[in-house]
Simulated scan of single mutants.
Amino acid sequence: MANSDSNSIVALPSRLFFSALSAFVAFLRPLLPHILPLLVYLSFIPLVLFFSASAGWIVWRNVAVGWQAPLYLQYGDGVPPYALATLPALVAQQRYDISLQLQVPNLDANYALGNFMTTLTLSTRSNKTLTSIRRPAILVPPRVAFYSSAPAVITVEVPLLTAYAAGVSHVVATVEVGRRDNWKSLGNEQGRELSVITASLRGVVVHHGIRGLVTRLPLLSALISSIAFLIVSSIIVGVCILPLAFRHAATQPKLAQVDIQPLPAISNSSSDDSESVEEKPLVQRRRSRPSSRTAIKTEDTSTTVLPPQTVPQGPLRRRRSKLVDPVSSDSES
């Protein structure tokens, strides 16, 4: 007995739960056609927000920015100092101003070299040459005021390319600094090289067209793109989902009228039956009239028929014909 009571006590909450659940389901069943499209639309809102934020981040991430690649010049190979470097990922259609920046020591030996050449070759990873250019440069002693000392390091900038678009994202640069004759015409005709502390290749974004607006205002451009994506996607989701709810709401009154129609239909049928019952004798009467008429007609025709006349008995007289034979007439005369 104790076990059965305990089992019933344990089963009571589950029964209450299932009964409450069934009552809740019964309550929601008529409302479900109206609520379901709205719930689906609301479930799409987090997804739309996520994709909108992703769109803004992608725009901000892909905005072209300036870059700087360090160069490590190689000396002692019998050729002018050179360096190979892989440039940062570029925007393929973005234009850049590319220049070489050198930091050289403030030495008279560097000033004595005079003019030197800088060669830049851009190629793809598959060793396809995109462009190659050579530009001259020269070191000039800086101007120093009488109350200050000369700087130990001089920065030299050599412009190479102006408003150049590589057309690819991954570019390999080869830079050569110096003269190929090694300045053998100077002094004792011994080879000389330019002393360089650090070297780097720099790219500056050229603002041009709509892309230039995006590069000038990257954060604002990302925000605008995110809001635009949010509005467009919300409109698309609303146009695809919300009409289902309104369509069901518009058809619901028609269904209610169909449910109410059986009562007047029964009364109409009964009235129709009564009318049909009342009309049936009329139809029969109308049908019976032609038969009476035909009977009357037959009686009239039967009464109007005269009896045949009796032929009087006696000798028959022969009627003389009007056509007389001439021969017979002469004989009679």
Rank of each mutant, 00 (worst) to 15 (best):
P105N: 06
N115E: 12
G187L: 12
G167E: 09
G187W: 10
G167H: 05
G187F: 10
P159Y: 09
V171T: 00
N106T: 04
A137V: 09
E189I: 05
G178H: 11
Q190Y: 08
T121C: 05
L90I: 06
W183P: 07
T129Q: 13
S169T: 09
R179Y: 09
V158L: 08
V172I: 08
G178M: 05
M117N: 08
L160W: 04
A137D: 01
Q101N: 11
L90D: 15
T119L: 12
T121W: 03
I133W: 12
V156Q: 11
R179D: 10
W183Y: 15
Y111A: 10
K184D: 11
T119C: 04
E157D: 08
R95E: 11
P88E: 11
A137S: 13
T162W: 08
Q94F: 03
R143I: 00
V140K: 06
L161C: 14
I154H: 10
I98W: 04
G114E: 02
V168R: 00
R179K: 13
L139N: 02
G167F: 10
A92R: 04
F116G: 02
S185L: 09
S148A: 15
Q94K: 05
N127Y: 12
L100Q: 09
S148T: 14
N182W: 14
R179H: 06
G191N: 12
W183M: 13
H170I: 12
A89H: 06
L139M: 10
T124Y: 04
R179E: 11
L161E: 10
A163I: 05
A92L: 06
V153K: 14
Q101G: 08
L194W: 01
L161D: 04
L120E: 02
P88W: 03
T129F: 04
D181Y: 12
H170Y: 08
